[in-house]
Amino acid sequence: MSATDNDKLVQEFVEAFNTKDAEKVGAFLHPEVVFQNYGESPVTGRDAVVEVWEGVFRNFAQVKFETVNQAVNGDVVLAEQVHGLAFPGGKLAPIMNLAVYEIRDGKIAAWRDYGNPQYAMKLLQS
Rank of each mutant, 00 (worst) to 15 (best):
T4H: 12
V25M: 09
V33K: 04
T4D: 09
V68L: 11
N59I: 06
F57R: 10
V56E: 08
D105N: 14
V72D: 04
I103L: 04
V68D: 12
V56T: 05
W111D: 01
V25K: 07
D47S: 15
D7M: 06
V49G: 03
G39S: 07
A110R: 14
K24Y: 10
V34L: 13
P94N: 08
L85T: 09
A27P: 02
E102Q: 10
G84N: 06
Q11A: 01
D47E: 15
F28W: 03
V14Y: 02
G39H: 14
E51V: 00
V50L: 02
S2F: 05
F13M: 01
L123H: 08
V68R: 08
P94Q: 05
H30P: 06
N37R: 12
V72W: 04
Y119P: 06
N116H: 14
D75K: 07
Q62M: 12
A27R: 09
K20D: 03
P31E: 04
M96V: 10
E15C: 04
V43L: 13
A93K: 11
A27Q: 07
S2V: 07
N6Y: 11
M96D: 09
T19H: 14
V76C: 00
F35D: 07
P42D: 11
E32Q: 10
N73W: 08
N69Q: 10
K91R: 15
D21P: 05
V10E: 05
E12V: 03
V14I: 13
V56W: 05
E80L: 03
P88K: 06
S126W: 12
G89L: 08
V34C: 13
R58I: 00
T44N: 15
F17I: 06
S126R: 14
E15P: 00
V72L: 03
K64N: 13
A86M: 07
K20E: 05
V50T: 08
G106A: 02
T19Q: 14
R104I: 00
N37M: 11
A27T: 09
T19E: 13
A61Y: 13
Q81S: 01
Q62H: 10
W53V: 01
A120S: 15
A27I: 04
P88T: 08
P42K: 13
A48S: 12
L123N: 14
I95M: 04
G106Q: 07
A86I: 05
V49D: 04
V72I: 02
N6I: 05
V33L: 04
A48M: 03
N18F: 10
Q11V: 00
F65V: 02
A71W: 11
T44F: 12
A48Y: 11
G90N: 05
V50C: 01
V68P: 03
Q118D: 14
Q36T: 15
D7R: 15
Q125I: 11
P42A: 11
F17K: 07
Q62E: 15
S2Q: 04
L123E: 05
G39K: 10
A120M: 15
F65Q: 00
A79G: 00
A109K: 01
D5G: 10
N69H: 12
E32L: 06
